[in-house]
């Protein structure tokens, strides 16, 4: 499969009162067309910022973005408009991602209106097709978001993202706010859409069981950096980074029999403001030692499996 998106050493720093907040700090990856990259990490690790930087919703501090073979790092206004038709986003909170004053059809139709060049009748018929695609009954056309449940709202968000026929969609925790039975419906919908339309996803989430399900590759982030990246099954079978190991062992498994021993981390995620040059996980790492004070290189331990820990093979 050809590469659709390539990120090279992306950095996004925010100026705060206490210094520079390294939200995204040197992330590089390639994403093939039609594949899904899962990005996992805990709150504050920069995973949402990464998605927003790729979509140019936030300005990049440094780094390069190559989209479909062309440089997309600093697009001018026209290029940005063209780019945004091909890159879309689905948000986490179906309660804040829809304008409460816009009806279902108005919300889905909005992308067409902004692009222009369509008659009102065309827009409406396209909207109805989209509603059918994502499974919202036509009778909800004139409903307002507050009258709908979370699952339906999320379907509207998906329809709106699909409207301009994008190639690439950043899914920012799209199912985290939903109940399990609804969550499964939405995940299946997203998988169906990917198959039908050849979509490429970047799936940002803190829910590891979901990410395994939907992703081809998974990237684990900690304090703005990629600590591990591997094919989904490989990562779950054989995590190398001590943070990934702890993270995977912490998932509560709905199973009474083969319960794993949890690796309990002490402490909590440290501040991403002015971090020290060494391994950022060091403060919580059970195996930390002197050499962890050096910056950690990302090494390919087995094909396609990258890890940023100097001690991965000695543990």
């Amino acid at each position: 499969m050809p590469v659709l998106l390539e990120a090279r050493d992306l950095k996004k720093y925010f100026k705060t009162g206490g210094g520079m907040l390294h939200a995204v700090d040197g992330i590089s990856f390639t994403l093939e067309r039609g594949k899904t990259l899962g990005v996992v990490g805990e709150s504050g690790c920069g995973k949402s910022t990464l998605g927003r930087v790729l979509l140019h919703l936030l300005e990049l501090t440094s780094g390069e973005i190559i989209f479909d073979g062309a440089d997309a790092t600093n697009p001018d206004k026209q290029e940005l408009h063209a780019l945004r038709e091909r890159m879309q986003v689905i948000f986490q909170d179906p309660f804040s991602s829809l304008n409460p004053r816009m009806s279902v059809s108005e919300a889905i139709m909005e992308p067409f209106k902004r692009r222009g060049g369509m008659t009102k009748a065309d827009m409406l018929s396209e909207t109805r097709i989209l509603m059918e695609t994502v499974g919202i009954a036509a009778r909800f056309e004139n409903s307002y978001p507050h009258e709908l449940d979370g699952g339906r709202r999320q379907r509207i968000g998906i329809a709106r993202a699909l409207a301009l026929k994008p190639d690439f969609i950043v899914c920012d925790e799209p199912v985290s706010a939903l109940d399990v039975s609804i969550q499964a419906q939405i995940i299946n919908l997203m998988l169906d859409l990917q198959e039908e339309r050849g979509l490429t996803y970047m799936f940002v989430t803190h829910d590891l069981s979901v990410v395994k399900y939907i992703s081809d590759d998974i990237m684990v982030m900690y304090l703005g950096q990629m600590v591990e990246k591997a094919p989904a099954n490989e990562l779950f079978r054989d995590p190398k980074h001590p943070y990934s190991k702890a993270l995977l062992s912490a998932i509560p498994v709905p199973n009474r029999k083969n319960r794993k021993k949890r690796i309990l981390l002490t402490g909590e995620i440290t501040s991403p403001v002015n971090p020290k040059p060494g391994c950022r996980f060091m403060a919580r790492c059970p195996n930390a030692s002197e050499e962890c004070n050096r910056p950690q290189e990302l090494v390919e331990c087995t094909p396609e499996h990258f890890v940023a820990c100097c001690k991965y093979d000695t543990l």
Binding site: I182, Q183, L208, S209
Partner: peptide
């Protein structure tokens, strides 16, 4: 049973979840 089916199982290799239909 439906609730269990809706959960993504970490050790499953299937590519589709089995959600409970409807609301």
């Amino acid at each position: 049973i439906g609730l269990f089916g809706s959960l993504p199982q970490l050790d499953s290799t299937e590519r589709r979840l089995k959600p409970i239909k409807g609301l």
